[in-house]
Design a protein around this nucleic acid. Structure first.
Length: 602
DNA sequence: TACTATCGCGCG
DNA sequence: AAAGCGCGCGATAGTA
């Protein structure tokens, strides 16, 4: 079955070792296309830890999976490839899981902009690596799922796929990291980012267990029976009739913001916007049914039957996750709105029979991260072992939990008005180090500078138009309008960089948590035969697996007997992530962990 | 007809 | 209560 189509060479250990013919240990295996655009062949180059080439293998694409399985088992290398989805989806479909990788595209994006990388120009010159991720083909269980031999037209965009390009870029990156100001942190960041890339593919393959019947029941309860194509659900029609009656206009349009605004003005509601918090200002019989119409309309259009048909198949919701898709390093998603899982639909997330969900989220992740980054002992003390906002209240800084929350969020987001801004001085005196950190990040951004996260991901520099606006305001003949605009843009950017350092470092903590947890789950024993409802990827049929990641929350789908052990693993992984990022600094990350049949929030 | 921009909502 | 960060998505309006 496995037929490498060319040589297998092994160089002898070169240095003065006494072991005869001992091969150097394989640290990395670089995979790249070798057959031109057809993708019929793949090359694998094994590298030692010092980057020297150990072996080169040419494979038919059909033979890749079993070869990778063998080498994974023998050498546990870090797989190096241009783009994780393009390689790993096919491997997983063949039941091959790998432990570690180095995603060249994601690493390129980090290193290219990182201020700690002095040799970034050589990376910036390699524009071909700047592209978007390759789009995975649409999931279709009946088709040749994730097949490398299948239609690759879905991969039209994406980074270079040849072996030479991969080797050159990998070399550039290794040099850039080694000569950077902080190689250890960058290596950690790239490893975490790459682990996330593996996990994103794994979670898509495994899917989030979804009870379509429960979802349909929820829709029917609220909207009425599923309407025929093009019709409006019954309950929406009824509520719309109430709204139109209150508007005194049987033909009023409720879906067009400008028309609705004019209708409201006609009946004496001088709202400037039709958003629900603007409408809540007014007391009028039209408001309640209008807000109800909006709620139902949102449910119907965003997560109604059409969504269910498109995104849920064979009991699994399979969104496309986009690791590194947000400038701060957070994940984005593409399709299905995976990162907006509406609260009211959480009850449709349901474990398979004989399985459980372990649902875990971190309380107040960002302020905890801020405390650690700033080495703010007072804030860390307020956070220790309890609700951080309660800790702030108990320290006597503010009077209520709500105030503590608003004040701290305002500090991290750059609030300038309202309760939040009013409370800021109290925070500044109680937590000077934490506040100084975010204030300094804002000042740098306001000035046009670049800020970086704890592990060294840097914010993008200001755009050319941003500089233009600033330059224009300092011209001799600048107008008041020019100056106002420049100040506004500068403050906007200051708020962005203020938040960047915190949100970005929180994303790094979350990646470290995920990566550690992924390793723990992989090391757990398989469930016994026969107790699994096999619905998807064979790799996950009998094993606890991550099913959702949502910035500061994970859902693990787990055979019931293993649930308590997995709950422990989730907590241990959080402790490990804290130690990995912040060493001995005394900050903890308490989790809310539940073992349940659904993902409902209490 | 196809596109982009804006609003509004909901997620962290 | 609706200021201050980051997203994705659907509907509508406006433009090419």
């Amino acid at each position: 079955m496995l037929r490498p189509t060319s040589r297998w060479t092994r160089v002898r250990a070169s240095a003065g070792t006494s072991t005869v013919d001992a091969p150097e240990a394989t640290a990395w295996i670089v995979l790249g296309g070798a057959g031109g655009a057809t993708g019929e062949h793949v090359e694998a180059v094994e590298l030692a830890a010092d980057g020297s080439e150990i072996a080169r293998t040419r494979l038919g694409a059909h033979a890749l999976s079993s070869w990778v399985r063998d080498r994974e088992g023998a050498a546990a290398p870090r797989w190096v490839w241009n783009d994780t989805p393009g390689w790993y989806a096919g491997l997983l479909a063949d039941g091959v899981r790998v432990g570690r990788c180095h995603d060249l595209r994601l690493a390129h994006a980090i290193l290219r902009d990182a201020v700690s990388v002095r040799e970034a120009p050589s990376l910036r010159a390699a524009h071909e690596w700047d592209g978007a991720p390759a789009e995975p083909t649409a999931f279709d269980a009946a088709a040749t799922l994730f097949s490398l031999e299948g239609d690759r037209s879905g991969f039209a965009t994406g980074p270079p796929d040849g072996m030479d390009a991969a080797l050159q870029e990998f070399e550039r990156q290794r040099i850039a990291v080694a000569r950077s100001d902080d190689p250890a942190r960058l290596r950690l960041l790239i490893a975490a980012e790459s682990a996330g890339a593996l996990l994103a593919v794994e979670m898509r393959a495994a899917g989030l267990p979804w009870d379509a019947v429960a979802h349909d029941r929820l829709l029917t309860d609220q909207l009425g029976p599923r309407p025929v194509a093009g019709a409006v659900p019954r309950r929406m029609q009824e509520v719309a009739a109430e709204v139109r009656s209150a508007l005194g206009d049987p033909a009023a349009s409720l879906d067009s913001q400008p028309k609705l605004l004019r209708s409201l003005h006609r009946i004496g509601i001088p709202a400037e916007s039709t958003s629900k918090w603007a409408l809540a200002e007014y007391e009028h019989p039209v408001i309640a049914p209008l807000l109800e119409y909006r709620r139902l309309s949102r449910l119907y259009t965003a997560n109604g039957w059409a969504w269910l048909d498109e995104w849920v198949h064979e009991g699994r919701f399979r969104p496309v996750y986009v690791p590194g898709g947000v400038v701060t390093g957070r994940w984005a998603s593409s399709g299905g709105g995976a990162l907006q899982l509406p609260r009211q639909l959480r009850s449709a997330v349901r474990a398979d029979p004989g399985w459980k969900l372990v649902v875990a989220d971190v309380a107040q992740l960002e302020p905890r991260v801020l405390a650690a980054m700033a080495s703010d002992g007072a804030l860390a003390t307020a956070a220790r072992g309890r609700d951080l906002y309660v800790g702030i209240v108990e320290s006597g800084v503010v009077a209520t939990r709500a105030e503590a929350k608003i004040a701290l969020l305002g500090a991290m987001y750059g609030a300038t008005t309202g309760d939040s801004a009013r409370l800021l001085p109290r925070l500044r005196s109680a937590y000077p180090r934490a506040m100084a950190l975010v204030d300094e990040a804002a000042r740098v951004g306001d000035d046009g500078g670049v800020v970086s996260t704890w592990l060294g991901r840097s914010s993008p520099p200001p755009s050319a138009s941003w500089h233009d606006v600033q330059a224009k305001a300092s011209d001799v003949g600048s107008s008041r309008g020019d100056e106002d605009r420049a100040r506004r843009w500068a403050r906007d950017r200051g708020r962005f960089t203020r938040n960047f350092v915190v949100q970005g470092t929180a994303a790094e903590w979350a990646l470290a948590w995920l990566a550690d947890l992924r390793g723990r789950l992989a090391a757990m024993p398989l469930a016994s035969e026969g107790d699994a409802a096999i619905r998807s990827g064979r790799v996950f049929a009998r094993r606890p697996h991550l099913a959702l990641f949502l910035h500061d929350e994970v859902i693990v789908h787990v055979p019931e007997p293993a649930a308590p052990a997995v709950a422990d693993a989730v907590r241990e992984a959080a402790d490990a992530a804290a130690a990995l990022l912040f060493g001995a600094f005394p900050i903890d990350f308490p989790l809310d962990v539940r073992i349940a049949d659904t993902a409902d929030k209490s």
